[in-house]
Design a protein around this nucleic acid. Structure first.
Length: 420
RNA sequence: GGAGGGCUCGCAUAGUGGCCUAGUGCACCGGUCUUGAAAACCGGCAAGGGAAACCUUCGUGGGUUCAAAUCCCACGCCCUCCGCCA
C-alpha cells in the first residue's frame, strides 16, 4: 500500500507513477475522494461516541426520574452512534479497497516504458562460440538422463517435468551452494510454508494483477506461493522490529507454483517456464533509507552466483511498465541461452520500499516514532532456468556437460556424461 | 475427526456489566544515591488515528445493552488428552 500522506500531499506524483506503469491514474482521484469521505465519517462517529460515553457514565450515577429521562436520551443517541459507526466502517472499506489497487510509486531512475524498454546496465562474460551445433537443454537432459519432460506431461500435464539422476543431483548441489553462500553473507536460512493464508498473499501484493498466476485451494482458502518471498515477507507480519536488528536478511528455499495463465504458446518446450520449481530466494527487511543500497547488495550477490556458474549474462534495469505492483525498481539478470541466441531472465531483484511492509504491518521503532520498514527480494537461484543455463552453456560436442568449478565439491563430479 | 482448557500493553498475570481513563509483578529506558556497579527510591514504558479535545483496539467477526475485557452466537489460533496418519 502506498503512503496515504504522500497520496494527499502529492497526488500528482502518484498519478505520474500510475501512468508510467501503464496503470489507471484515475484511481488516485477516487482514492482521494474516498479518503475525504472516510475522514468525515470518522470525525462524525467519534463526536457521537464521545457524547455517548459521557452520557452513559451519567446514566450509571443517576437515580429515579432523572435516570429514566437520561435513558431515553441515551437510547436515541445509541441508534445514531450505530448508524455513524456503520457509515464509518463502510467508508473505510471503500477507501482501503481503492488504495490497495494503487501500485508502489516507481523509482524515478527506472526507465519509463513497456517490457521492451529496459535499459542494459552491463554485460558480463561473452557468449561462447560453438564449433559444433549446440543442443538445447531438452535434448541434453535426455542424453544425460537429467530431465524427463515426457513423463512429467504424462503424470501432471504440460509444463511439468521430472529431474532425474544427475539433474536431481544438480538441483541439490545448486541449492547447497546457494544456501552456503547466503549463510556466509549473513542470511538466515529458512524453509518456509508454501501454503499461505490470504493475508500473506494480499500483503505481498500478489492478489492484484498477478492474481491469475496464483494457485488457490478453494476448499481451504489457501494459496500456493509462487515464490518464498511471500512467506518470508509475511514472517514478520504485524511485528515491530528492533531497529538495531536491521537489516534482517533471510534466504528461503522452497517450491514455487505458478499457473502461467496467459502464457499459452510461450516457452512450451523444455523447463524454461513451468508450473512448479524450486528456488533459493534472498529477502531483506531494512531501514527505508537503506533500501536503495540494499538493492545493490542483493544484485551483487546475484551476480556473484552467476559468476560462480561461469555463465555469460547481462543485467537490465526493468522498465516501469514491467514492474510488479509492489516494486519501485527491478533489476533482472539474464543468462545467455545459446540455442535461443538470446539472454533470458534467470534471476531478479526488486525494491519494494515500504509498500509491502505497510500492507503486512511490519514496522520498526526509531527516534521519529514507529514506521514501516523497507522490504527487498532477490533470486539467488531458480533451479530450472539455472539448469538450462548450465547444460546449454557448458555442453561439449559429445553431449557431456562440464560442471562449473564452484559446484564440483557439492556434486562430487566435474562432468556429466551421456547415459546408456 | 472427538473431548477439555486457554487467548488481556515484550513476558507473567488481575479483572464476571458502569469506580477500566485496563491494575500489578518482571523485563526495559531515564534519574537520584555511588569512585563504578548492585540494591533502594523517583519517573517513563502497547499500537493506530487526530493540531488538540478525543476516539479506536482486551484473538477475529457478529449480537444483547443507555453502557461489554466482562453476557450470547459463530469462527480462528494455542495447549492437554483420544483416534487416524507421514
Amino acid at each position: 500500500m502506498i503512503d496515504v500522506k504522500a497520496l494527499r500531499d502529492n497526488p500528482d506524483l502518484v498519478r505520474a507513477s500510475q501512468k508510467a506503469r501503464g496503470e489507471n491514474p484515475d484511481l488516485v482521484d477516487q482514492a482521494l475522494a474516498a479518503d475525504e469521505k472516510r475522514r468525515n465519517a470518522i470525525v462524525e462517529f467519534e463526536a457521537l461516541r464521545a457524547e455517548q460515553n459521557t452520557l452513559s457514565k451519567s446514566v450509571g450515577a443517576a437515580k429515579g426520574d432523572e435516570k429514566t429521562a437520561l435513558l431515553e436520551k441515551a437510547k436515541a443517541l445509541s441508534a445514531a452512534v450505530k448508524e455513524a459507526e456503520s457509515k464509518k466502517n463502510a467508508t473505510e472499506a471503500d477507501f482501503k479497497k481503492i488504495a490497495m489497487e494503487i501500485s508502489n510509486l516507481v523509482d524515478t531512475s527506472a526507465p519509463v516504458g513497456g517490457e521492451a524498454d529496459f535499459k542494459v546496465i552491463e554485460e558480463v562474460g561473452t557468449p561462447r562460440k560453438f564449433d559444433f551445433e549446440p543442443k538445447d537443454h531438452v535434448e541434453l537432459g535426455k542424453i544425460l538422463g537429467a530431465i524427463d519432460v515426457e513423463r512429467g506431461a504424462k503424470v501432471s500435464g504440460a509444463r511439468f517435468y521430472y529431474l532425474t539422476g544427475v539433474g536431481a543431483l544438480l538441483e541439490l548441489a545448486l541449492v547447497n551452494y546457494a544456501i552456503t553462500m547466503a549463510t556466509k553473507a549473513g542470511f538466515i536460512p529458512m524453509i518456509p510454508p508454501v501454503l499461505v493464508k490470504p493475508a500473506a498473499m494480499e500483503g505481498t501484493g500478489f492478489l492484484g494483477q498477478a492474481a491469475e498466476n496464483v494457485f488457490h485451494l478453494k476448499e481451504d482458502d489457501f494459496y500456493l506461493v509462487g515464490t518464498s518471498e511471500v512467506p518470508l515477507a509475511a514472517y514478520h507480519m504485524d511485528e515491530i522490529l528492533d531497529a538495531k536488528s536491521l537489516p534482517l536478511r533471510y534466504t528461503g528455499y522452497s517450491p514455487c507454483f505458478r499457473r502461467e495463465a496467459g502464457s499459452y504458446g510461450k516457452d512450451t518446450r523444455g523447463i524454461i517456464r513451468v508450473h512448479q520449481f524450486e528456488k533459493v530466494e534472498m529477502f531483506s527487511f531494512c531501514a527505508p533509507e537503506e533500501a536503495v543500497a540494499e538493492h545493490q547488495r542483493l544484485l551483487a550477490w546475484e551476480k556473484e552466483f552467476l559468476n560462480a556458474m561461469e555463465i555469460p549474462y547481462r543485467v537490465i534495469d526493468v522498465a516501469t511498465g514491467d514492474l510488479g505492483s509492489s516494486a519501485n525498481r527491478k533489476f533482472d539478470c539474464e543468462a545467455w541461452i545459446p540455442t535461443q541466441n538470446a539472454y533470458r531472465e534467470v534471476t531478479s531483484t526488486s525494491n519494494c520500499s515500504e509498500f509491502q511492509a505497510r500492507r503486512l504491518n511490519v514496522r520498526t521503532k526509531g527516534e521519529n516514532g514507529t514506521y514501516p520498514v523497507a522490504t527487498l527480494n532477490g533470486t539467488l537461484v531458480a533451479i530450472p532456468r539455472m539448469i538450462v543455463s548450465i547444460l546449454e552453456n557448458h555442453q561439449q560436442t559429445d553431449g557431456s556437460v562440464l560442471v562449473p568449478k564452484a559446484l564440483q565439491p557439492f556434486l562430487g563430479m566435474d562432468r556429466f556424461n551421456p547415459v546408456g
